[in-house]
Simulated assay, not measured.
Amino acid sequence: MALLETQGLTAFYGDFQALFGVDITLDAGETLAIIGANGAGKSTLMRSISGMLANEPNQISFDGRLIGALPAPEVMALGIAMVPEGRKLFPSLTVEENLLIGKYGRSVKGTWTLETIYELFPVLRERRNNPGTALSGGQQQMVAIGRALMSNPRVLLCDEISLGLAPVVIRDIYAAFPKIRAEGAAIVIVEQDIGQALKVADRLYCMMEGRVTLTGTPDAISRADIHSAYFGVHAA
């Protein structure tokens, strides 16, 4: 049985339908990459799984439990943590206070504490008393990841974590994922950077216009296949 699964997932913003029958599975300890252009439905998928967007109860299951209609705090308490697009740090709080918020509502003890987060991202220890939004974009992203890890999640959802960051910063952030995975978390990474996604994923899903257009392992999918699934046209 998959740890996390969506079955025929649909999602709406009012009368606008954003997802059309999306099926994905995530096994324990696995890393999935969700790729696609802007408007493909990637962030809507993450919002649905995390409980930020309500769905039909039977369209999402986690560890055998139907969670599609659960609100975000209950989803987080079960062990699914979200690193949202844009980071969404609290500007009135310090780095350390932003990190500590991540453990509220989840009583499970595990590897991730302030100390282990600072070991993962040493620059945050140096900046721990600074306002969270006074950091560089890359450092803020580290805070957002650390905040999610503080709940010791079984599934870590990462929505567009490289967006707007310099390549050297992206490299430093992605260097943390093997350690995160080694500590037992399954990871779902939403990415527009196809090359980066292929480096870290066990499997990938490509989305276009709210539908899954391609799935497979990086070594079994050609760039031509990805191009076709990503843009809906065949590469020359």
Rank of each mutant, 00 (worst) to 15 (best):
A176N: 07
D202M: 10
S92I: 07
A224D: 15
L93N: 02
L163H: 07
V188K: 04
D15H: 14
I117A: 06
E209Y: 14
T25L: 13
I170H: 08
P153S: 06
L45R: 07
P218S: 10
E56C: 08
D225G: 13
Q17E: 13
N38C: 05
M46R: 00
L157W: 02
R106A: 13
Q139L: 09
A11V: 12
V233M: 15
A144Y: 06
Y205I: 08
A2G: 14
G51W: 01
D23W: 04
L165C: 05
G39W: 12
A220Y: 10
A72R: 07
S50A: 09
P71H: 07
D202T: 08
Y104V: 12
Q196I: 11
A176Y: 04
M1L: 13
D23C: 12
S222G: 13
A81W: 00
I35P: 12
D63V: 00
Q139D: 08
S151Y: 02
R203A: 04
S92N: 12
V212D: 06
H227Q: 12
E30F: 09
A185W: 00
F231Y: 14
R203S: 03
C158W: 02
E209R: 15
I49S: 02
Q59H: 09
E183C: 01
E126Y: 11
S43Q: 05
V200N: 07
G41M: 06
R127P: 06
V155Y: 06
A18L: 03
D23L: 11
P122R: 10
L157Q: 06
E115A: 14
E183M: 12
T44M: 01
F231A: 11
A2F: 14
I145Y: 04
I170M: 05
A185S: 13
P71L: 02
L120Y: 05
T213P: 04
N55R: 01
T217C: 14
M46L: 13
G79A: 00
L198R: 01
E96K: 10
E30R: 11
I117R: 07
R211K: 15
L19G: 12
P167C: 08
A197R: 03
Q139W: 01
I180A: 05
I117N: 05
V123A: 14
S222C: 11
G105T: 04
S43T: 14
G146S: 04
L4F: 06
G110T: 08
P122T: 12
D27C: 13
D15L: 15
R211I: 09
T6F: 07
L4V: 10
D219Q: 12
A33S: 15
P167I: 05
L114M: 13
G21L: 11
L214M: 09
G14P: 05
L32E: 00
